[in-house]
């Protein structure tokens, strides 16, 4: 029979199961980015694309800082601090949007090459494009947990969606930590 204790146990087990699923998803998605990384080095070798270093540094910082606020949000909701959770999540979302504007708006516009301009263009736009797509979906997930958070749906015991969204956000950030050096730092122009 289902006592409150067993229901809690059952739910905890289910979340553990969902957690395994989430990490397997990250493992799978990582292979896409690994393929792009390998392609970048296969085609460009020790050359890197002509890019605005300043802009690159700015967008990278924005993304890293957003991860800080994402973590804060998760910690805050696990402590029951709903208002702070909402604020932190909102900041994360806004920083994510700033990142997208910075890359797709500015970097893409300012780059001295287009997607059809040689392998430099092909790899740069493909890598940043696929990453930006994931940031965009991350922003969408953040919007969902923001809205649900405002409605009071999350509590210290029940906030799996926040944990999942936060981990996804960190995953996307981690990808950029590999992509940024690969595109901006490693190799000669």
């Amino acid at each position: 029979m289902n006592t409150p204790a067993t229901t809690l146990e059952k739910r905890a087990y289910k979340i553990g199961t969902a957690r395994v699923g989430l990490w397997l998803f990250f493992l799978s998605d990582a292979f896409v980015f690994a393929a792009l990384l390998v392609s970048r080095f296969y085609l460009l070798g020790d050359k890197r694309p002509h890019l605005e270093q300043g802009l690159g540094l700015i967008v990278t910082s924005v993304l890293l800082i957003s991860s800080f606020f994402m973590n804060r949000a998760e910690v805050q909701i696990s402590q029951g601090n709903r208002k702070a959770f909402v604020t932190s999540t909102l900041i994360t979302m806004l920083l994510g949007i700033v990142f997208l504007v910075g890359v797709v708006g500015f970097e893409w516009g300012l780059a001295p090459f287009g997607p059809a301009d040689g392998v430099e263009g092909a790899m740069f736009y493909m890598m940043t494009g696929m990453h930006a797509f994931h940031v965009l979906t991350g922003v969408v997930f953040l919007f969902i947990i923001l809205r649900n958070g405002i409605k009071g749906r999350y509590s210290p015991e029940k906030h799996w969606a926040v944990e999942a969204a936060a981990n996804y956000w960190h995953f996307v950030d981690l990808i950029w930590i590999f992509f940024y050096p690969a595109l901006y730092l490693i190799g000669t122009v």
Partner: peptide, 29 residues
């Protein structure tokens, strides 16, 4: 499986946007 998706996506984009991943004339391989 992700790699067949990625490789097909790259050919598809080469066709659609001229991204020269596999086109020697653009430095691709």
């Amino acid at each position: 499986t992700q790699l067949i998706g990625t490789s097909f996506q790259m050919v598809s984009f080469q066709r659609l946007f001229g991204m020269g991943f596999f086109d020697p004339a653009k430095g691709g391989n």
